[in-house]
């Protein structure tokens, strides 16, 4: 589990075991360098593709002016509130549906239809119903995040091996005991996979909601920059969104490693 047991010396051992520590920044420098080279070499105008330096400047001014913080806080609240609502409802309905084959089979075609329909398409409707404020964005984020959670909760609760159920049955466990002690923990790894997808989806939902109609948020910031042909500004917001996405992803991974520590992937640290 702990590969540090094999280290022989300090620096060389570390590099040999984890060459990516050097390779990741190296690739970053390479990408930024060639980006700069292409933009300058082909004399591409700023409003089409800005140079990395301009993006950095735009990003930095967004950070120092406090504009990113205010807008990101807004977008993040929309996304997280939507995510929590989706997590709650997805787990609740997933659990109810998983209780009965008949309910599952009856709802299955509807779930497939809803799942294959791009939920984003109802964003304009939700804006009409819930206005330009935060409510409509939370609804959109919750809608897109709901299905990956629902589907994974159902799949997870179904995935338990028959022997565990048989063991619980041999002990005359109640339905609730079997759910709490066996089904739910068995389902957690699958549920977590759904939550990881859902949290990314919820940001997506919030941004799309802001595109369709809003006064604040990172999506709104992108629209403003777009109107002004401030392409570097758009890229700056994208960097901000990337940082937000990565942070949420890392939080989820951290939670996963702690809550479903027994899976092979959690133990090896690979995802």
């Amino acid at each position: 589990m702990d590969s540090s047991d094999y280290s022989t010396g300090p620096a060389p051992g570390l590099l040999r075991r984890r060459p990516e520590i050097v390779l990741i920044p190296l690739l970053f420098v390479l990408i930024i360098g060639s980006w700069h080279g292409v933009v300058k070499g082909l004399a591409i105008p700023d409003y089409v593709i800005p140079a990395p330096g301009q993006v950095a400047t735009a990003f930095w001014s967004g950070v120092t002016s406090g504009s990113y913080l205010a807008h990101a806080a807004y977008t993040l609240s929309e996304a997280l509130l939507g995510f929590f609502i989706a997590a709650f409802l997805g787990t609740l309905f997933g659990t109810l549906i998983a209780q009965s084959r008949i309910i599952e089979r009856t709802l299955y075609p509807y779930l497939i239809v809803i799942q294959t329909t791009p939920k984003i398409a109802i964003a304009p409707l939700l804006i009409i119903w819930f206005g330009f404020g935060i409510t409509s964005k939370i609804f959109i984020a919750a809608t897109v995040a709901f299905f990956p959670i629902l589907v994974n909760v159902i799949a997870g609760l179904r995935s338990i091996d028959a022997e565990k159920i048989e063991l619980m049955r041999s002990l005359k466990a109640t339905k609730w005991q079997t759910f709490r002690m066996a089904r739910l923990p068995s389902a957690l790894p699958t549920i977590f996979a759904g939550l990881k997808v859902a949290i990314v989806f919820s940001i997506l939902g919030a941004i799309v909601g802001e595109f369709v109609g809003s006064k604040v948020g990172l999506g709104n910031l992108i629209l403003q920059a777009n109107v002004n042909l401030d392409t570097a500004g758009i890229f700056g917001v994208l960097v901000c969104l990337a940082i937000m996405g990565i942070t949420l992803h890392l939080v989820m991974e951290w939670l996963q490693r702690r809550l479903v520590f027994w899976t092979a992937s959690a133990r090896s640290g690979d995802y």
Binding site: D161, E163, K164, E166, L167, A182, P185, L188, V260, T263
Partner: peptide, 14 residues
């Protein structure tokens, strides 16, 4: 009043 052991351990990994 009975206990059972299956062919596989059937332990709860968590």
């Amino acid at each position: 009043d009975m206990g059972i052991v299956f062919q596989t351990p059937v332990l709860f990994p968590w």
